[in-house]
Simulated assay, not measured.
Amino acid sequence: MIKVTGIKLENPTILAAGIMGTTGASLARVAKGGAGAVITKSIGPEPKEGHKNPSMINLGYGFLNAMGLPNPSYPDFKNELAIAKKESGTPVIASIFGGTEEEFVEVAQGLLKSKPDAFELNVSCPHALGYGASVGSNPDAVESITAAVKDAVDIPVWVKLTPNVTDIVSIGDAAQRGGADAVVAINTVKGMAIDIESGYPILGNRFGGLSGKAVKPVAVKCVYDLYTALEIPVIGVGGVYTWQDAIEMMMAGATAVQIGSAVHEGLEVFSSIATGIEIFIAEKGYKSITDVIGLAHERI
C-alpha cells in the first residue's frame, strides 16, 4: 500500500495513459490484472481521429508512435469513465488535454461527474499539433493551465511533462507554482524512422514519440532531477518492464511508476512488478517501500 497525492494504491504500479484506456471495460481489465491504479486515454474537448496509419511501429528496442491523440471527446467518454470507476476497484485517473486553459477546464469539469480520482494534464504529447508538448514546452502556459484546472476542480491534479525541452525542471517548477499535486515524468521522446528502400518516413505523421526500454535512462535522469528540485511527488514513467526497473525509478525519486509499452508483453506485468518490489523490500530489510524512494540521492 502506498499513497500518492492522498490516493491509496494497493501497489505502486499505474497503467500509463494511452494504453488500453479507451473503454471502461479495458481499464477494469487492467485493474483486475494487478495495476495499483489506471489512467484513461487522453481525452479532449472535441473528437479527434488521430493521424493516418502507420501510426505505430515496433523497433525492437522500443515503440515509435504517432497516434495524434485520437479520442471521442469528453461528452462521449463520461460513461466509459463511470464504468471504469464502478468496475475497476482501483483509483482511476482521467488524462485530459486541450489547446488552452479554457479547454482544459472545460474537459475537466465535463468529466467531474464521473468521479475520477485525479486528473493528469497531458501537456507533453510530442506529435499532436497545437496540443501536448506544443503547450507543455512553455513554462508560463504550464503554470496557467495547471492553476486554472486546480481552481476548477476539487481532486488532485497531476501534470505529465515532456522530455523534449532544454530543462524539464523549469517545466516541473512551473507546474508546481500552478498548484500541481504531482508531476509525471516522462512522456515519449521525439523520434523518426525512414524506410531505406523507398526513402519515405515510415510513420504516417513522419515523426512520433519513442517509448519502451530505450527511454528508461532518460526517464530516470528526469525523475532524479525533478525529485531534487521539487517539493511535490514525482511519478516515473518510461521503460519500466521489470521490478528492477521500477526500483531504479523509485530510487531516483519516483513515488510510483507508470507502465505503458510493457503491457504489450501481457497484463501480468503489473502483478509481476508489484510482487518483485515486495520481495525486494523484504529481502533488503527496508521497513516499507517509502524507504526506497529517493535513495539514490543519499548515495552521493
Rank of each mutant, 00 (worst) to 15 (best):
L111S: 07
V165K: 00
K8L: 14
P75C: 06
L129Y: 15
A193W: 02
A84P: 12
M250D: 09
P45M: 01
D245K: 09
K287S: 02
I168L: 09
N53R: 07
I145F: 06
G130Q: 04
A252G: 13
V105F: 00
P233V: 04
P47T: 01
T22H: 10
A147R: 14
A28P: 04
K150H: 03
S261Y: 06
L15I: 01
K41M: 03
S124P: 15
E120I: 15
P54L: 04
G172D: 03
K216H: 07
T275M: 13
P139Y: 04
G253Q: 02
D151V: 01
N65V: 01
G62K: 07
K85I: 01
A214K: 04
Q258W: 04
E268G: 12
K287I: 00
S137I: 08
A28G: 10
G132N: 03
V4E: 03
I14H: 07
A274R: 06
A37C: 05
N79G: 07
K221M: 12
V153R: 04
V257W: 14
D167K: 10
N187T: 12
Q109E: 02
S42P: 10
G191P: 02
G50E: 07
T100P: 12
G18T: 00
E103F: 13
L15Y: 05
D117N: 15
V165R: 01
G266D: 02
G136D: 06
I259T: 09
G132E: 15
P45H: 12
K115C: 10
A214I: 09
S73G: 08
D181I: 14
L112S: 09
K78F: 02
A274N: 06
A108L: 01
G178S: 05
D167N: 13
W243E: 05
Y200Q: 08
T242F: 06
D225A: 02
Y241G: 03
G110Q: 08
A296M: 03
K213N: 13
V234I: 13
L59E: 03
F97V: 05
A133Y: 08
A282Q: 06
P201M: 10
S134H: 14
V38Y: 02
I57F: 08
N71H: 13
V234S: 02
E10I: 02
A296S: 11
S95F: 03
A254M: 07
W158I: 03
G253Y: 09
G191N: 02
G6E: 00
P72T: 11
D76W: 10
I235G: 14
M20C: 14
H297P: 05
L27H: 13
V135Y: 13
G50A: 01
S211P: 13
L226T: 03
